[in-house]
Design a protein around this nucleic acid. Structure first.
Lengths: 144, 144
DNA sequence: ATCTATTCGGATATTTTTGTCCTATTTGTT
DNA sequence: AACAAATAGGACAAAAATATCCGAATAGAT
């Protein structure tokens, strides 16, 4: 569904959010360990998220990654996915046609419509806070 | 959403079905042209579908690909997707966890559940015939 | 029998995604 | 000022997906 990069990006964002609630910055190393991802690759993805203004980074000693505590609940999953994978997942044609819309649909266009709309709606209405709270309360997990 | 291979596989199957209704075999060349796909790559995918018993091939002059006319309505999209991409799309975890289920869910498990279930349902309840008829009647298209 | 049109299948090439390595830069601490 | 702990970013490597090439096998037509 999502690229590996996107999976890592989402998980990393959740972990950063979790710590930002307690005003703790987290290092790349800690993130990679927590979400079970390759460190250097994760670094690239985090850079991407920083460039997109979704997370913030602080260089140097005692540096790391963080998210503005008061922004966490307004960051939508769709923003993260969009920053990393683009919008193809809920905009592109299911069969890869260049132009696929109501007027010139691919054979599965209508069938896919509801699935993609639901996905889009879910991504646009799920925020980082909800996800972080599920980790905090122990009902959801970031690895294994 | 799907791999390129899977997109080609679905489109090719539809085109073959369409012709099989008129008892016409179609060649690899004709298929690739019709669905706008690279010929040799498409050949590999068709071989895959043949091995999975979804389509049939006939070698030699006047050979080509076909689908048993009376099987077309019973071939589900899920069979094609499964043969090419496997079942990861509606079985695997949205965030790539090795184990992700009700007891040990990833943070987006519940949110994804309905999307994946709807996708699964759609794939398992959409058959080749419906799709082929939409092409035949001109309401849907295989390229551009 | 030979020719031709076709799929089959192995080897290879290209592109994209994923992953690694190393150096530069920044910033707090001593 | 020097050191240590971080992120930034460029170059490279490996793996996977996508794509190409070519000879072998098959089967109908002449």
């Amino acid at each position: 569904m999502f690229s590996k990069a996107c999976e890592y990006g989402i998980k990393a964002s959740i972990f950063i959010a979790l710590n930002s609630y307690e005003s703790k910055r987290v290092s790349l190393k800690a993130i990679a360990k927590e979400i079970n991802s390759p460190e250097a690759f994760t670094a690239k993805i985090l850079q991407d998220l920083v460039r997109n203004g979704i997370i913030k980074s602080v260089k140097g000693a005692y540096g790391g990654f963080e998210i503005d505590k008061y922004a966490i609940s307004s960051i939508k999953l769709s923003q993260i996915v969009n920053a990393i994978d683009g919008d193809n997942i809920y905009k592109g044609c299911g069969l890869g046609l260049n132009t696929c819309d109501e007027n010139h649909p691919c054979p599965v266009h209508d069938k896919f419509k509801s699935v993609r709309d639901e996905l889009k709606h879910m991504l646009e209405h799920t925020n980082l806070e909800e996800l972080a709270l599920d980790i905090k309360s122990g009902v959801a997990f970031l690895k294994t």
